[in-house]
Design a protein around this nucleic acid. Structure first.
Length: 224
DNA sequence: TGCCAGGCCGGGT
DNA sequence: ACCCGGCATGGC
């Protein structure tokens, strides 16, 4: 436990020293964070920002209006985010749930244990483990560790996890070796994203990838 | 020009 | 229990 904790903190400090504080989530308020979490599924954040700007222009940063907006109209508004018909459904599912069950009151929705909130989010069609954890950590401000493609890429590259570890195994590795500290989980995930963007995508090619320079530039722990 | 981006679901084996 | 195709825009 202690050894893994130290390695994880060394990685954290290396990333922080190189990239500086990321100050996530790059969105305004809990509701926009929830919206962004859905829209950014497998999608570049720049496109998500356009979609959110459209929602603002249409005065749709609102649980009730999102829950009652027609799907074709919602889809057209979020078009720049890609997968727009799928995401219109997912956004609608999420907002309808919060509207129906909590009258759109996020404070009430978030007033429960991490596990209870996470399970409830996962029960909504279109909300998978990463989107649920994004919402729990960044919108609700509760300690859950977010795992995504960049997390996997960085952690496998440094042999801190196995290639066939699944979402829960990776999440559990962090949570078992770090204290449940919200600011730490927040910044850690954001730094993994900043770092992961600079790693080549195909692990098999990594040894010859020029971006391996980050092993030295950043002085990330590099276990051979 | 083709590849990539902060997933998730549903159907087939 | 896996494996896979589908979903889609915009930037480099």
């Amino acid at each position: 436990m202690a050894a893994k904790h130290d390695e994880l903190m060394a990685l954290y400090q290396a990333m922080l020293a190189h990239f500086g504080p990321q100050r996530w989530w790059p969105g305004d308020g809990p509701l926009e964070i929830m919206i962004g979490a859905v829209l950014t599924q497998n999608t570049n954040w720049a496109n998500v920002e356009r979609a959110i700007a459209n929602l603002r222009r249409s005065d749709l940063i609102d649980v009730e209006r999102l829950a009652t907006c027609s799907l074709p109209r919602l889809a057209e508004i979020i078009r720049p985010a890609g997968y727009f018909r799928v995401k219109a459904n997912r956004l609608h599912n999420l907002m309808s749930h919060v509207w129906r069950e909590y009258g759109g009151d996020l404070e009430i929705f978030f007033s429960r244990s991490v596990d209870s909130l996470r399970e409830e989010l996962l029960s909504i069609n279109g909300i998978g483990p990463e989107t649920a954890d994004d919402i729990v950590l960044y919108a609700a401000g509760k300690p859950t560790f977010v795992v995504d493609a960049y997390t996997y890429r960085v952690m496998v590259r440094h042999k801190l996890i196995a290639e066939d570890d699944d979402y829960h195994a990776i999440k559990d590795f962090f949570e078992s070796n770090l204290p449940p500290d919200v600011p730490l989980y927040n910044e850690y995930h954001a730094l993994l994203v900043a770092t992961g963007k600079n790693y080549c995508r195909k692990i098999a090619l990594c040894d010859r990838c020029p971006l391996n320079r980050f092993d030295h530039d950043v002085r990330l722990p590099n276990r051979e």
